[in-house]
Design a binder for these strands. Sequence first.
DNA 1: CGTCTCGTTGAGAGTTTTCAATGTAAGTGG
DNA 2: CCACTTACATTGAAAACTCTCAACGAGACG
Lengths: 196, 196
Amino acid sequence: MFEVFFSQVKDKVLLSEAEQKLVKTFFSPKKIRKRQYLLQEGNICRHLAFVEKGLLRSYNVDDKGIEHMIHFAWEGWWMADMLSFLSIEPSTYHIDAIEDSELLLISRPDFEEMLLKVPVMERYFRILFQNNIISKERRLISSISNSAEEKFIHLSATNPELIKRIPQQLVASYLGITPETLSRIKNKLNKNVPNT
Amino acid sequence: MFEVFFSQVKDKVLLSEAEQKLVKTFFSPKKIRKRQYLLQEGNICRHLAFVEKGLLRSYNVDDKGIEHMIHFAWEGWWMADMLSFLSIEPSTYHIDAIEDSELLLISRPDFEEMLLKVPVMERYFRILFQNNIISKERRLISSISNSAEEKFIHLSATNPELIKRIPQQLVASYLGITPETLSRIKNKLNKNVPNT
DNA sequence: CGTCTCGTTGAGAGTTTTCAATGTAAGTGG
DNA sequence: CCACTTACATTGAAAACTCTCAACGAGACG
């Protein structure tokens, strides 16, 4: 159950056997099925979720009822509303499963305790957050700098797995464009490069 | 010179006198003047910069020569290209001063050493990065969810100091719209609410 | 006083959205 | 397993939004 988890953690920091054992105690496994909510708007995000298997999405819903995809997480990625989790305020996001998923959950108190008892995990999360900042910054730059078509090309280049794995209308939302526009863009690009 | 710095750090973590003294040794003060570069595209970002006084901006320049504002930092904020700083790769950003500024710089090796020798600073930076993630996420959501007008209204509400302090054409770039569009939006909003 | 930068305004062009219709694939219940 | 329903992708046409290009005015600075 912790295979993906420790392989991810060990990518960033060194963990002794004892530390691994201790870290495990803070997490609880959870399975959720496709379409099932992990978090609903208005509730407090009580856990960080690590995806061992499957696919989650986080999104918010605006006044007009339109969903805006914030983040996708599949094997090896984390999912949460960090703001709600850290500030213990009601979330403005929804989190649910796009595919049946197996998760590892850690609560806020356990998270704090783990960071204090296993300082290398403090380090792991600092590194994780650093990387998250960098990737968010890239997405942001693409969002403010590029046209819809350029944004899609950029995403295809930087995150092809996302394009492959995520339903098209959710990709459109993730890019901040309408499904119709994305459909037209793909159509246009396919015409230009039919040999793929 | 460290007044703003320690008041910021102490907002997030507790620091003993001894730790403060030690932390100080890792930083070097630097003054830069309006329009002066702190970092140019193609160079490696060798320092994190803390702004004691003044105002910096980071931005990239696209193929068409258009600048895209990534971040502004005034008193109490950090500035760097995190990707370049952490990966020690050439930066794709420029950083320069919008106002004459006084900075505290820390190099990558000193940064790493400080985090190991003063664990509470590891904690400080994790918290800092957490907050950064949250604010970047908000900006991103606004960027993908809203029209130009909504984005400006949102920014005015969440970060009025930015609107006041940053030249208008840079605010437009920050929002991912043209200066002309921003000018028209402001004009329109002033007509609707002339009594302010 | 002249120059330069920045903000404003106008008009037309280009992009993206909206609304609607159609086709297609997937999921569900009989 | 098939028929039916539902959700999703595609396409078209018009509307809305934003950009581009250009001109003008105001203020900063030497």
